[in-house]
Amino acid sequence: MSGTLGIAVIGTGKMGADHARRIDRMVAGARVAAVADVDGERAKEVAAGLDGCGAYTDPEAALAAPGVDAVLIASPGPAHEEVLLHCLERELPVLCEKPMTPDPAGALRVVEAEARLGRRLVQVGFMRRYDAEYERLKALLDGAELGRPLFLHCRHRNAASPSFFTSEMLIADSVVHEVDAARWLLGQEVTAVSVLTPTASGGAPEGLRDPQFVLLETSGGTVVDVEVFVNCGFGYQVQCEAVCEAGSARIGDGQAMVVQSGGRWGGEIVQDFTVRFADAYDRQLRRWTEAVREGRATGPSAWDGYAAAAVAEAGVTALRSGVRERVSLAERPGLYGGHG
C-alpha cells in the first residue's frame, strides 16, 4: 500500500498505551488512527497525545473509524476472540497480544475463520522471536553446527507477581512464552506437559504455587524444562540454554556493563519485561508494519496462538492433577505450513 498505515489500537492499558507510543515515535510509515477502551477517559487520554487519533469505547467503532488499515489488539485476553473475528470479517491485518485467546477452543475458531478466508491476516505478539539473542540462537540451531538439540533449559523469573496472579497463570501467562519460543527454536510441536511444584517460596502470596517446574516433551524428541518463579524478589530474568549433540549455547545472562568498586563487582538486573524486551517490541512492530504495507504475512500465526493455548491448557491440567498430560491438536490447515 502507499501512504501512511493507519492502525487502530484496541485496549489502552499498560501494553496498549505503550504500543501506541511506539507506533507514534518509533515506527516509520504508520500512525495511530483510533484507540478503543471500555474506560473512555483512558482512551481519550491516550488519543489526546496522538495527532488525528479518534477515541472510542466500542472496538467495532474503532475498526470502522476513518483511515484504519490495520489493528493492534492489547485488550484483556477474554476480549480478543470477538475483535479478531471482526477483523477477519473486515479483512483487516491484525497484531494481537498474547494470549490470542485464553482457551484453545476460541483460538481454533479464529484459525478456522482465517482458513476459510484463505489468507493470513493474524499475527500473535510473541515478541521473543524478535529479540536479538533469540534470533541468534535460532540461526545457530537452524544451521545445525552443534548437532541435534537434546535439551532446552529455560528460566523465567519475575521480581514480583501482580496481585491478581493465580497458580494457573504462571503457565498460561508466563510459561506460554517458553512454549512458543521452544516450538519456534526447535521447529517441533509440544506433545506432553508435566508440572512439579516445590514447597512454595516464602516470598509468594499465600496460596500461590510459586515456583513451578514445567517439563515439555516435543515431537522431535527434545526435552524442554522451564523453571518459572514469579516472586524471585531480585529482578526479571529470561534465560535459555540449548544443549545439543556437539555443544551448547546459552542466552539471557544479561551481562552488559560490570562495575568493580570497593572490593566488589557487579551489574544491574532489569526489573521489568518492558525493559528486557524493549528492542524486541520495537522490531516486532516495525516488521509487522512493513509486512502489512507490502501485503505479506509474517511472524507468529494464528496457528501458533492456537498451539500455545492448547499446550497451556494441558499444562494447567497437569498442574492441578499432578499427572503428565498429552497435548491434543486439531488438524493443521494447509494455510499454516511448517512449524512455528
Rank of each mutant, 00 (worst) to 15 (best):
T274Y: 15
V224D: 08
E313V: 02
G220E: 13
Q237F: 04
V238P: 01
R264F: 15
A249R: 11
A256V: 03
W265I: 01
S261Q: 14
V226I: 15
A280W: 01
G252S: 11
S248L: 07
E294A: 15
A256N: 07
W303D: 03
V238L: 05
R296C: 02
A297D: 13
D304K: 07
T218K: 06
F273I: 00
E206M: 06
S301E: 01
G207E: 03
T289S: 10
S301Q: 09
A256M: 04
G295M: 04
L208C: 11
V243G: 02
E206T: 08
E227G: 08
G266N: 09
R296P: 00
S301Y: 05
E206I: 05
N231C: 10
A314V: 10
A318F: 07
E294Q: 15
Y306F: 13
E290D: 13
F213G: 03
T274S: 14
R320C: 00
A297E: 08
V311Y: 06
A291W: 05
R286M: 12
G266V: 04
A307M: 02
Q284R: 07
F229T: 01
G221R: 02
A204Q: 06
G203L: 13
A242V: 10
I251V: 14
A256F: 11
E217L: 08
S301C: 05
R276A: 14
V243K: 10
S301N: 07
P211R: 14
E217T: 07
E206G: 05
E245V: 00
R250E: 05
R283I: 01
D210W: 09
R283G: 02
A246T: 06
D210K: 02
A291H: 07
S248T: 01
A246G: 02
E241I: 08
G233P: 09
C240M: 15
R209N: 06
T289M: 02
G235P: 04
A302T: 04
T274N: 15
A246H: 05
E217D: 14
A249Q: 11
V270E: 08
L216F: 14
Q260I: 01
V223A: 07
D272Y: 09
L196S: 05
D253A: 04
R250W: 00
V275H: 06
E290P: 06
G207L: 09
V311A: 08
F277V: 00
W265G: 14
C244W: 08
G221K: 11
V228I: 14
A249M: 10
A200S: 14
V230S: 13
Q284E: 14
V238K: 06
G254T: 01
A204G: 07
W265F: 09
T197Q: 11
Q271P: 00
R320K: 15
D225P: 00
A310G: 04
D210S: 13
V316Y: 04
Q255W: 10
E217V: 00
Y306P: 00
A256E: 15
Q260V: 04
P300T: 09
F277A: 05
E290K: 12
E217I: 02
A242Q: 12
F213T: 00
R286L: 03
S219G: 15
C232P: 09
S301I: 03
D253M: 09
C232A: 12
V311G: 10
A308N: 02
C240P: 03
G233L: 11
G203D: 12
Y236K: 01
A318N: 04
Q260N: 05
A242Y: 11
R287Y: 13
G254R: 05
Q237N: 08
V275E: 12
R250A: 14
T298M: 13
T317Y: 01
A307N: 02
V230P: 03
